[in-house]
Computed example of a mutant assay.
Amino acid sequence: MSSRSGRSGHSSGHGSGKKSRAGQSTRQLIESLQTHRVNTLTELCRIERVAAACETEEDARAFQGPMTAAWDYYVTSNQMLSELRGLTPSYPFCGDILTQAQALVRSDPESNRSWNLAWLCLVKIRDADLISTYAASEAAKPEMWGGRLPEVDEAEQLAACFLYEWEMAVLNMLRHWQASPTWY
């Protein structure tokens, strides 16, 4: 039963207490974003869903800056790369892909459509086909082969392994969003 309408027999003081608790919860979540106590994809997505469900415009606006900064920190602090590498244990995710995605996002005038740098980077990795490019170049590096140049078929086979594991990691991360976190 909701006490918001005041029809449930509760005094209006109870409703303001509920509003006060909601405001306190909002402040606590914002503080956890600002202090980086929360810096994992799962937790940031959870807070993002709370922010999207705010009942007041004031609370929604209060989340905007801290949420944007938290996503930026998640990407630039290498936490996103760490999580991608956790999803790619056999063929660790190439950090250059994420670096390139960030550069592409930051130079893209359409990137202002979202507050979520991690989501923008994942979409850019997928849409710009960065994984194919980097899988082939990484697989051909002599350091992948004990210092020797690989045969063409060896490099292609390794590139296919990179491609599969890295694409699955990106798709796995993108599944955290039921809808695109965009302004429009």
Rank of each mutant, 00 (worst) to 15 (best):
D127Q: 14
R106D: 09
S82Y: 11
L117C: 03
Q34C: 00
M168I: 08
I47H: 01
R148F: 00
A135D: 05
T99Q: 14
W183K: 15
R4T: 05
G65W: 01
W71P: 00
T56Y: 10
P150N: 04
R175I: 00
S25M: 14
E143Q: 14
H10A: 08
H36I: 03
A139K: 06
S3K: 07
E151Y: 09
A160L: 10
S5N: 12
E83P: 03
T68R: 14
T26C: 14
E156S: 14
G146W: 07
N39G: 02
N116Q: 07
T26N: 14
E151Q: 11
S8A: 12
T99N: 13
H176M: 05
Q64F: 03
K19A: 14
R126P: 05
L33K: 01
G147N: 05
A103S: 10
R37Y: 00
N172I: 01
A51W: 03
L117N: 04
R37T: 07
R7K: 12
G65Y: 01
S5T: 13
L104I: 07
R27T: 09
S132T: 12
R85W: 06
G95E: 05
E58P: 03
R106A: 09
T76Y: 03
S77Q: 03
S77V: 00
L174E: 04
S25H: 13
Q100Y: 08
A179E: 15
I131T: 08
S111H: 04
E154T: 07
T182E: 15
E55A: 14
R4Q: 09
L163V: 00
L158S: 02
N78C: 10
W166L: 06
H36D: 09
A160C: 02
T182N: 14
A179N: 11
S90M: 11
Q157M: 11
Y184D: 13
V170I: 14
H10C: 06
S11D: 13
T88H: 06
A103L: 10
A139W: 02
T40S: 15
S137Q: 15
S5C: 05
T76A: 01
L98I: 09
V105A: 06
D153T: 12
P109L: 07
R27Y: 03
H176C: 05
R4I: 07
S2M: 01
A160R: 07
L120V: 07
T42W: 13
T68C: 08
Y91D: 06
L41R: 03
A128I: 06
V75F: 04
P181E: 04
T99H: 10
Q79M: 13
V123L: 13
L104Q: 11
D129T: 06
S20K: 15
N78S: 13
G86W: 01
W119K: 01
S12Q: 11
G23T: 01
Q157T: 15
E110M: 11
T76P: 00
M80D: 01
L130H: 12
L98G: 06
R4P: 04
T35H: 02
E57V: 10
T56R: 11
S2Y: 02
A101S: 13
R148H: 04
A103N: 10
R126D: 11
S180E: 15
T35Q: 07
V170Q: 03
F63C: 08
R175S: 12
T182G: 09
M67K: 02
T26K: 04
S111A: 13
K18H: 10
L29P: 00
Q178P: 07
